[in-house]
Write a protein that binds this DNA or RNA. Sequence first.
DNA 1: CATACTGTAATAAAATATGTTACAAATGTA
DNA 2: TACATTTGTAACATATTTTATTACAGTATG
Lengths: 135, 135
Amino acid sequence: MLSGKFAITIHILTLLNKFPNDYLSSEYIAGSINLNPVLVRKEIANLKAHHIVESKEGKNGGTKLAVDSSKLTLKEIFEMTFETINLGYAKNQPNPDCPVGKKINENLDALYADMNQKVSTQLQGISLEDFSNQF
Amino acid sequence: MLSGKFAITIHILTLLNKFPNDYLSSEYIAGSINLNPVLVRKEIANLKAHHIVESKEGKNGGTKLAVDSSKLTLKEIFEMTFETINLGYAKNQPNPDCPVGKKINENLDALYADMNQKVSTQLQGISLEDFSNQF
DNA sequence: CATACTGTAATAAAATATGTTACAAATGTA
DNA sequence: TACATTTGTAACATATTTTATTACAGTATG
């Protein structure tokens, strides 16, 4: 559930924000992340689905930001690349005949919902521009 | 890095807290979680290393809480089962010749450090007893 | 029309998580 | 003492997820 998606996506967006007038190729972006270009294109597909970037096919094609980086927050990026943050669940269905087993996931859910609230508040306060300005 | 460890561990501890006078067997605990007993014993080994539980080998053996559940916080459980919370890193080493690649992990680290701070504060406010009382 | 891209599917490889088997050692109990 | 039950732990097996690769059709540029 946790993977490198958020990190990769924010890396892509930071690069796009550094070159707001250029269409960057997946090959170029992949070179900065040190990642396979196909995986970059997959994350870009996700960003496109959320109308955060636009791409141009064909020669000299590539991708550029389609939104104002001061208005895009890390919370939105988080939500595009993660469902929620949590500390995991036991994978198997716990025993419904045990009072603890029966309610454990419900109680973990409540705990994790609070965590998400706190993390979301933090991330909402940081724009892509803010993040990008650190470089 | 994220797995079911936290969930499994808190499940174990909740059970132990429900039966504070009994040594529960890994078999019994595994039945509630619906997990292999060996994996339960592995998590218990971790708890023992932190002096949270004590075990008795041999017939009628098992594990029981060794601490006051009102004093053990979820933060401590979190730290025993996770290093930190984060939204991941690109797995490969980013390109050090790119200004973004060179600093991306450092900047993500700073972001995640803040997240951990917030999550830790939340978890510190919840004791095992509090959690267990929800069942 | 050659070139350089995106988009996407199919497949492979690697990494991680979970499960199983096995058995020595400990301990209670008949 | 002999037996049954349980922990502790290692070794191995399987499943799942993540990451990488290959391939190629489609699109735009010059």
